[in-house]
Design a binder for these strands. Structure first.
Length: 671
DNA sequence: TTTTCTATCAGCAAC
DNA sequence: TGATAGAAAA
């Protein structure tokens, strides 16, 4: 299959795609066809005879990775089973599954998410005699992460340091790693075992990094270990919105230092938005100081409708307005519900928008927030499977040892914990020891209950380590622990909740079923499944029946997406920019502005911004001031909506026809 | 010793 | 709004 690269790309894109060898830095403004460049670049390499297994592309979300792989496949019409397109974290897992034994972990390690981690930190602090009321787990977690990712060092008199040591020792004892470890541990492997590094480095001769502005210090390190000279970073400093997660857009500067002969290519043509939206976005972001100069421009010359501002009475009115406006525009312009995106700063704000949409019968889906896998009932089941896969995993052991109730309460666990501590063993190992040695003191009843639990784990462990019928075995497990009955007793006063939770559990098991029956899945083991779901997010779940619905999500979750019509709700001072974010540091106003910029540039055709006059906070209505960012939009680009009349201003030009005629190839382009 | 009930507190973004 | 710690009840 031959691709006419020159015809399907603009000159800058073409240059970016065909510069295969040597370091390349692509500064890709919002909507400039970033994904297109990356996918075409991979296709180009393949066409030039680079073997697929030599290409590594790293992205930030599973969704982006999957879509990218799909597009390369459809572009080249090849199956490409050995092409590696993956998130940083998933790639870290891939390395660790091969190499972690070098560091003293076993291959069946567990991955702790944030709540697992916080639980462990709490246990460690308690263990060391800290009063839990005065011990800030969140703060400790942040410091731990900073230390682990080498952003700060201990001062030597830090109260957290001891807890950190305990935490690290516990992780190792439990054969577990946390999220940061997924990046840090591979680096450690590469530093300590140069032969391992050489092997990986040789394997991937072409490395590409997407969303480079959001790479953290350690991700950059990992990339450096892996890349020789053929490295290509694609990013946009104006869209760096993850500094709280360690992202550091100064990596762009470091890249230029580390590869001085870098070829730098700027993509500023925007194929997405109207001139009005671009002008507004440019004007807003120009208020940031520390950035690479660039301005988006539209090759179409379509001015488009003005940006519509609205100040609803309160959050309820805001939700109503959004719902009505969506209905009206959909009808008038024959759009689909999925053409609409409603963006908010915090997940808590979704509620009011949801109520508005519900009241007007507008179908919607919420992306992000507490993911499916964070739900209690789902975590329970996953905890069981984690313990079955890795019995040393104390955090998950504790979580489920008494769910459903089996008489193993606090006292028994405390006692078991003491015994484990004395011997330096995991709880599971200790429990086995207790079973074998009647001399070890424990009340008879507790002993029996514990034994029963051990047997349960063991019988399922031997069952599930096979490579067949995982879903059926999970169903059997659910039966064995009678999880259904537990859901009923645990939700006595809320039958609906119990039913809903049961449905969730069922859909989890169905998910396993689908996954293990996928012909492309070459490793249908319990370990593989656990590794996968540890890294999965809500946006990986959608596709099923979610097309044709309005998209409701946070601005963070919207990065990389685009919608015909965008609403930015809750555009008030204190929310956008978020007060809490500003408290944290000086530079955060600029990051909040970038966040707003990202929100604005999601819109192709029309943008609505609302800022409530009053909003309830903790049940008390509070007067609100519009976001200062609104004043940064040139006045000539906006109109005010007064709360009645036409909700959908006309922009008579036929946007689509014009847009499509301007460009060859697919016009609908994600970033 | 375990389970159930009640009061209190904190709530930004997510791999 | 939910999680969680501590008190009361079983």
């Amino acid at each position: 299959m031959h691709i006419d690269f020159e015809a399907e790309l603009n000159p800058e894109q073409y240059e970016a795609v065909t510069t295969m060898d040597g370091p390349v830095l692509i500064i890709a403004g919002a909507g400039s066809g970033k994904t297109r460049v990356i996918t075409y670049r991979m296709a180009y390499m393949l066409e030039k005879g680079v073997p697929q297994s030599a290409i590594l592309a790293l992205t930030f979300t599973n969704k982006a990775a999957r879509e990218m792989a799909e597009r390369v496949k459809s572009l080249t019409r090849r199956k490409l089973q050995n092409l590696t397109v993956s998130t940083f974290h998933a790639f870290g897992v891939k390395i660790l599954r091969k190499e972690i034994e070098r560091l003293g972990w076993r291959e069946n390690f567990s991955i702790y998410d944030e709540s697992d981690r916080n639980q462990l930190i709490k246990d460690c602090a308690r263990e060391l005699g800290f009063k839990l009321e005065t011990f800030d787990v969140q703060a400790a977690g942040k410091v731990f992460s900073d230390v682990k990712t080498r952003r700060v060092a201990w001062t030597g008199e830090d109260a957290y340091e001891k807890v950190y040591r305990e935490y690290e020792a516990s992780l190792k004892a439990f054969n577990s790693v946390d999220f940061d470890d997924l990046i840090v541990k591979p680096i450690e492997v590469f530093e300590r075992f140069p032969e391992a590094r050489a092997a990986w480095r040789e394997h991937y001769r072409y490395v590409m990094i997407d969303e480079f502005q959001d790479t953290s210090h350690i991700q950059y390190e990992l990339m450096r270990h892996l890349s020789d000279d053929n490295v290509c970073a694609v990013g946009d400093d104006d869209q760096s919105i993850y500094s709280w997660r360690g992202a550091n857009y100064e990596n762009i500067v470091r890249f230029e230092k580390d590869w001085p002969h870098v070829r730098e290519i700027k993509l500023e043509r925007n194929y997405r938005s109207t001139g009005t939206i671009l002008e507004a976005a440019n004007a807003v972001i120009a208020n940031n100081s520390n950035r690479k100069e660039k301005a988006l421009w539209s090759p179409t010359g379509i001015e488009g409708a003005p940006i519509q501002l609205f100040r609803p009475e309160d959050e309820v009115a805001e939700g109503e307005f959004i719902a009505r406006s969506i209905k009206e525009q959909k009808l008038k312009e024959r759009l689909a519900y999925s053409d609409f995106g409603v963006l908010i700063r915090t997940n808590a704000l979704t509620r009011w928008v949801e109520e508005g949409l519900l009241a007007e019968n507008v179908p919607y889906k919420v992306t992000g927030g507490t993911s499916f896998f964070q739900r209690k009932e789902i975590k329970d089941i996953i905890s069981y499977l984690r313990v079955i896969a890795n019995p040393e995993d104390d955090v998950n052991f504790i979580r489920i040892v008494n769910v459903p109730r089996r008489g193993i309460g606090r006292r028994t666990l405390e006692r078991l914990g003491e015994l484990a501590k004395e011997r330096g063993l995991s709880l599971h190992k200790t429990a086995e020891l207790v079973r074998a040695n009647p001399s070890m003191e424990l009340p008879e009843k507790a002993r029996g209950d514990l034994e029963e639990f051990l047997e349960l784990v063991e019988s399922f462990r031997s069952e599930m380590l096979g490579r067949r019928n995982l879903a059926a075995k999970v169903r059997a497990l659910l039966e064995a622990i009678d999880y259904r009955a537990w859901l009923v007793t645990d939700n006595l006063h809320n039958e609906k909740a119990a039913k809903w939770k049961l449905l969730n559990v069922e859909s989890l098991v169905n998910g396993i079923d689908v996954w293990e029956k996928d012909p492309d899945n070459h490793d249908p083991t319990l370990f593989a499944w656990l590794n996968r779901i540890s890294l999965i997010t809500r946006d990986d779940m959608d596709d099923e029946e979610d097309s044709g619905k309005v998209n409701l999500m946070t601005v963070h979750a919207a990065k990389g997406l685009e919608f015909e019509i965008v609403f930015i709700a809750g555009c008030e001072d204190g929310i956008m920019p978020h007060a809490r974010s500003l408290e944290e540091g000086e530079g955060n106003l600029e990051e909040e502005r970038r966040l707003f910029y990202v929100a604005v540039t999601r819109a192709r055709r029309r943008l609505h911004i609302s800022s409530a006059m009053r909003r309830r906070r903790n049940a008390m209505p509070v007067d609100c001031v519009p976001s200062p960012f609104l004043a940064e939009i040139p006045e000539k680009l906006v109109t005010w909506y007064e709360g009645e009349g036409d909700l959908a201003p006309d922009d008579a030009e036929d946007f689509f026809a014009k847009m499509n005629s301007m460009f060859p190839g697919e016009a609908k382009e994600e970033e």
